[in-house]
Nucleic acid binder design. Structure first.
Lengths: 214, 214, 214, 214
DNA sequence: GATGAATGAGCATTCATTCAT
DNA sequence: AATGAATGAATGCTCATTCAT
């Protein structure tokens, strides 16, 4: 947890530090992040860093909490875009879309997540074991309810399917940030929103064509 | 390319070095790998490392080539397990299974691949730009042929589907190495081989149940 | 350019570092100079060196600039000793003398120059390509003007003569630093100041005696 | 002194080693010369080097003796080109010319000398204190004899003049090796032979023009 | 509390010399 | 004696963290 000294900072300065840290942690694995880069980017003295934070991990945790909070707020504010009435696939489609929209609107924060998912499994578990559990649990619940009403085949493994949904969403985000980076034209965004739809379509209907099963 | 000095080493010693390097490169990003760790693990003097290799990258490339070669040999030796007659999904299922079996039999080598896919996009492209291209191209071809004979829906995006197949396979490997690490019981292995089947099933048939589309 | 950290140092400490560096760069070719020696001599931690300077070359350039500046200031302060009225040989004599006096008063700085002239031709050109050009050009101009007023034979090659003047001056300095090192007695200094006069005399009147030319 | 092992070598191999060492010692200061370069160039095993020589200095001394011997032999063989009848300046002119011709014919060996004269004064004195003494003594004798017969002004300092003759010759050689390197056209050589003449002319007649002395 | 300089552990790499075959 | 691999000391440079003002 950042010290009181950090919280007492004028908001502008605090923001500068957060932005600098975001850029650093969003660019390289945690183990390659450097205090030197952050203080240089933020324009603060080296010593101040240690007056605000215990170490890099302290700052990282703080940033991560901010990111989670930001995402939650975004989802609440854009909750009206989430389809709640249709079948599970329509709901998933809208979920992917709104999630991707968050990335488009907050690419720096999203990069933090991308880097996080590239860390060692041990690092991820140790750092925020809840996250993956919760993410997967969300999809599991969704799928189980859908199975209950027959929207999803009962023979599908919920675990597998939840993992697929979870990872496909991650992949989508990663590709967006790799390929586009900063959204420039509406076209870029549309392309990716459509890709999100296509992924759900794939997971919804599968690949199989008309030929009979063996 | 390692120097002749390395190739002339007694096989036992050479193996020690390879194992030490594999542990290092399989544990941390390339830029965090340390000569110090490798020589300590392998029990060789610091100077010897540079008598064998130009630098870490030289060793990394060598290891990578060995890994690719090992994988190819494995696929050849276990080629009889690959289904070539049935439909595309049967073939994919066997592909996933044999690929996963390689990981089960060679977990240290597979970890190298897992770390590789966590590297920067730039690093990956610069180091082995062909790899991803080929991996994706393989699935694209498979899918296009399957579309031609009607096994795969013509409305499916080949690009999206190839990406999904490629990434799902990667995910399977990563999860196996995370969860199990070193194969202990047949049960562990069976669990993952079945998971491979389940993933293909999911991609084959999709999630959708009996309820009508809107 | 040394960092601000270096310029902010207490003058005594800064001087210690400069002296240590001067001893190092005045003793060995640049490529043999060691950070280790300098920090040991100056009594500063290894890390501090890199807080003050980018690398050895950074320090070398700084020292070189100081040396040039020091020489210029010296020449200005002792400019009254420079003869400007008499013929070219009187002017040269005073030039050699004041130049040598600088070396006598600043032997450590002069040693830097001696080492510099022992570097590879490539190093010298790359480091300070102007220096030799300017030095030679100075003598060329002097000689051409002297030729114009008949003080110097018109049949003398200006290029050869400028080179001779330039190198003889260098030689004088090098011999002084080799033979005497640190001025101890007035006699030592006088001996060399007279040697400077004798050199100019030689170049002025040549060796030829009374016997007729062939 | 090289060991018997070296002297027993087949002449071709011995020559290869000598050539490789010449290239190395002729290119860099002694302190930068590397065993690695020499054994690589000569194509001999690293261990052999230490079977032939104690260390680099051992080889350097051996090479130096060879160089001195070669020069002496050259001077003897080309002694007929040395003018012995005319006045001292004619003799000096021919001395410079034959000396320069040696350099033109044996540039690799001459480079060794150039590098030698760039070494520390201490190194030179410690290594071959006789050399400079002898070189200077030769010119001193020449000049004293010339003074006796009136060819050289009696007021000239023999010490200064001998130094000038010695150094001017060195300078000539150094410039030739810097500028031309390997003789390509007769023009290159002629240019430098004429420069040798011009230098003697300068030292013979001095710079002074027709204007009266003060 | 703010500042930025001081510190030294850590790492890659080079290379002369020794050693084992 | 020939060979070339083994060795480890030396060195430049980085960077997190502590310290002094």
């Amino acid at each position: 947890m950042p010290r009181g000294t950090f919280h007492n900072l004028p908001p502008g300065k605090r923001a500068l530090i957060i932005e600098a840290a975001l850029r650093e942690f969003g660019s390289v694995p945690f183990s390659k992040a450097k205090v030197a880069n952050i203080v240089k980017e933020a324009g603060i003295p080296r010593g101040s860093f240690y007056q605000y934070f215990d170490d890099l991990m302290d700052l990282y945790r703080y940033l991560w909490d901010l990111a989670v909070q930001r995402k939650l707020e975004y989802m609440q504010q854009h909750g009206h875009r989430l389809v709640v009435s249709g079948d599970v696939f329509q709901r998933l489609r809208s979920l992917y879309r709104v999630g991707l929209q968050f990335v488009i609107d907050n690419p720096e924060w999203a990069r933090l997540g991308v880097q996080f998912y590239r860390e060692d499994h041990d690092f991820r578990i140790h750092f925020d074991g809840e996250l993956e559990r919760q993410g997967l649990a969300f999809y599991r619940t969704l799928l189980q309810e859908a199975q209950a009403v027959g929207e999803v085949r009962s023979t599908v493994s919920v675990t597998i399917a939840a993992t697929a949904l979870y990872q496909m969403n991650r992949l989508l985000v990663e590709e967006y940030l790799n390929d586009v980076g900063v959204p420039r034209w509406q076209d870029d965004m549309d392309k990716f929103l459509q890709r999100a739809d296509a992924m759900i379509d794939l997971l919804e209907n599968g690949l199989r064509g008309a030929t009979n099963h063996v």
